[in-house]
């Protein structure tokens, strides 16, 4: 149905996905990935991207070694997850834990995308998973960060995605023991 509506758009996106899969060039992959992630910003493309299983493509990128792949994939998910239908797809593919792992990434942009994505993934059904103590403690640390963007996002998360009671508990636990979530990995 969609491919009769705007076949050109669909075909173009399809050719991007094909190039991504076929090319051996890391650089080309990065470019295509960034393209796809940017297309995910426009709601017109969301349906086609879903059809092309781009949400899963982005999720795959989160465990790549290339930091650009991770950043672009995470950015793409940040864009996609605004849409309710895409959100379902991401959740079904086990997106929460994959995205949570990105909270420890060294790049701020990746972390910001991860926080926003987690907020987007919060539904009544997933709330308990997203307001899990490990994540809340991570957000508490972020809310003390130097970067105002990270600080603000974490503050929004703590105010919107969990109860005050949960925050208090997480704080208490934090005084006891630390979790590793959200601590940047050491640079090689």
């Amino acid at each position: 149905m969609s491919s009769t509506e705007a076949p050109e758009r669909f075909e173009y996106l399809q050719s991007l996905v094909t190039e991504f899969q076929d090319t051996d060039s890391e650089e080309a992959k990065e470019q295509v990935l960034a393209n796809l992630a940017n297309f995910a910003y426009d709601p017109k493309n969301l349906e086609y991207l879903r059809e092309l299983q781009v949400p899963d493509l982005f999720l795959d990128m989160l465990t790549e070694e290339n930091e650009n792949f991770v950043e672009f994939g995470m950015g793409g998910l940040c864009n996609l997850s605004m849409d309710p239908d895409c959100r379902e797809v991401i959740l079904q593919s086990g997106g929460i834990s994959l995205v949570t792992n990105c909270l420890s990434n060294r790049r701020e942009e990746t972390v910001l995308s991860a926080v926003t994505t987690l907020m987007n993934l919060a539904t009544p059904a997933t709330r308990s998973q997203i307001s899990e103590p490990g994540i809340l403690q991570c957000m508490l640390r972020f809310s003390l960060a130097e970067s105002p963007r990270l600080r603000n996002l974490a503050a929004v998360f703590l105010q919107d995605c969990c109860s005050e009671e949960q925050v208090r508990q997480a704080q208490q636990q934090m005084e006891g023991r630390q979790t590793a979530v959200g601590i940047p990995l050491p640079k090689e």
Binding site: N152, A155, V156
Partner: peptide, 30 residues
């Protein structure tokens, strides 16, 4: 980075509702 917490929250909310509206109108158009 000049945003306040409230700015950031509103920005995200606006974006989400915009996408939701777009999704609804897409469904309607279909």
């Amino acid at each position: 980075e000049y945003e306040t917490v409230e700015d950031t929250r509103l920005k995200l909310q606006d974006r989400r509702s915009y996408i939701a509206r777009a999704a609804r109108s897409r469904a309607k158009q279909r």
